[in-house]
Nucleic acid binder design. Structure first.
Length: 188
DNA sequence: TAAGTGATCTCT
DNA sequence: GAGATCACTTAA
């Protein structure tokens, strides 16, 4: 780790999930492909899944083999398959034992949680691994997004979660591009 | 608006 | 084991 390393480390993720989610806006999801080339993609949409009480979270019914990474150390990936074909990319937050994570839903250049994983070639092999250079997938600091650019909305696809479904745990950058993506993903 | 898709979870 | 569910996308 050099002085110029922009990578967000464990201490960044070892904080309240909503804070992490908010501050991930503008950060850059960074991936190294099989040829060794590095690409960076600004994050414009995320959702927080916070704690065992959150009925929208996989962790709300306790620990299972699948959601085990959510209970693990912060700054690690939680990647799972949804609807039999879509990989969802989450980064774990909070201390070990507290199940929480932030779902990365949209990038500046790719909107949709499943489309971005497909686009970047992210799948199960990252599950439970640390978000660092060695593993080829990590997050770097990026543009500081001001509060006036941020919109908070309910999460997508969690209508089953009772009053948790209405909580504004979804954060988007309301730039013209993100605005368009926000509308697109809002139809449920 | 609905189909596709299969791992995961819950209940027998 | 069987059946339901699912943090989505695409085509129509």
């Amino acid at each position: 780790m050099t002085k110029n390393d922009l990578r967000l480390t464990e201490d960044f993720f070892d904080r309240p999930t909503l804070n992490v989610a908010r501050e991930l806006l503008g950060a850059r999801l960074t991936v190294r492909d099989s040829v060794g080339r590095i690409s960076r993609h600004a994050i414009v949409e995320v959702e927080a899944y916070d704690g065992p009480e959150d009925l929208a979270s996989h962790a709300s019914r306790g620990r299972t083999e699948r959601n085990a990474p959510m209970f693990g150390p912060p700054g690690h990936w939680y990647v799972y398959l949804c609807y039999g074909m879509h990989w969802m990319l989450n980064v774990v937050t909070g201390p070990v034992g507290y199940p929480a994570a932030v779902l990365i839903r949209g990038l500046e250049d790719v909107s949709g949680p499943a489309r971005l994983t497909r686009s970047l070639g992210i799948d199960r092999r990252f599950d439970s691994s640390s978000a660092n250079r060695r593993n080829g997938l990590w997050i770097e600091t990026g543009r500081i997004v001001s509060d006036v650019e941020v919109r908070r909305l309910p999460r997508i696809g969690v209508d089953y979660a009772g009053d948790w479904a209405a909580r504004p745990y979804r954060f988007i950058v309301s730039s013209p591009i993100a605005e368009k993506m926000g509308k697109k993903t809002q139809k449920v």
